[in-house]
Write a protein that binds this DNA or RNA. Structure first.
Lengths: 159, 159
DNA sequence: ATTTTTGCAAATCATTTGCATATAT
DNA sequence: ATATATGCAAATGATTTGCAAAAAT
């Protein structure tokens, strides 16, 4: 009678205790379709009387992130959100409208990284690459013109 | 008698008031060699009795960022920091040791973005690409082995 | 048995906001 | 004159921490 939950399995494999609260957080995470914040999970836990507290949610997410089961995104607006992901695979494209995140395989990013190393003389240690846009579904249901959304131009009325 | 400060000039060009507090913040920003946080500037202002308050520093940085004079980085550890940068140029490689940031010109990044659009069906709106590593100087003064620093492996002792 | 984990509430940290006053235009 | 910006202190929001009790090993 094994553990069918991949998050919990990974936890267990890494030597962490497979506790009920972690199972609960893992379950909440697993059924999310788009990105979510720690506080959203805290809220869900409270509403559904799941009995896991704020600190535990934060700690579980931190742990999941450490194990590569979840990734913390820095959204363009400045906030943070998590998405589930395959371990050791770390680029996502995130829909600005529905929040869905899709994993992106190395489309030449490694090569770019190498090129940058060569050009700058830096030794590259890690990179953060996040793309934001509209997913195919949202493109279909909310078509936008050729003109992409643009930031207010520097010459526009400043107030 | 013009304004020799590029940050202030840009502000002015964009139609914002060229105020003394903003000048002070711009000056602090301009003489930073590596990345800095809003609170570091607040601290400097306090220590040097520059007379600009917390809110003003935050507001000035927000404005500078809007004008593309400064970029807000999301550091790997989760914090934020700012770096000065050329307007409309938005990729940096940041030294993990000294915090210096170097602008990186498009080393094929646009191509990657396109490839991802094609593969995923997303319409890419914006991307965040930040690289972290060791700058040439820090490489020289703190040589590290071929083995890059690695995250604790999943099989390592969890505590 | 022993170690890790939890939950709570309080603490911390970063950032924002209201509003009367001051400043730039 | 008029609009914008400032400073302060208080509010907010997110995340972390201390610690005794509970659960997993």
């Amino acid at each position: 009678m094994g553990n069918p939950d991949p998050l919990m399995t990974a936890l267990d494999d890494a030597g962490y205790y497979a506790t009920e609260p972690r199972r609960v957080v893992a379950a909440m995470v697993a059924q999310r379709e788009s990105h979510f914040t720690a506080l959203e999970l805290v809220g869900e836990a409270k509403q559904r009387h799941l009995g896991v507290g704020r600190a535990t949610v934060f700690r579980a997410l931190e742990l999941f992130e450490e194990l590569g089961l979840v990734e913390r995104l820095d959204l363009p607006a400045g906030g943070h959100a998590y998405v589930v992901c395959e371990p050791a695979h770390h680029h996502h494209i995130v829909c600005q409208r529905c929040g869905r995140a899709t994993e992106v395989d190395d489309c030449g990013i490694e090569g770019v990284s190498k090129a940058i190393e060569d050009r700058t003389g830096y030794l590259v240690d890690s990179h953060r690459i996040e793309l934001f846009g509209l997913c195919p579904d949202c493109r279909a249901s909310q078509p936008i013109s050729n003109e992409r959304r643009r930031r207010p131009s520097a010459t526009a009325d400043p107030h």
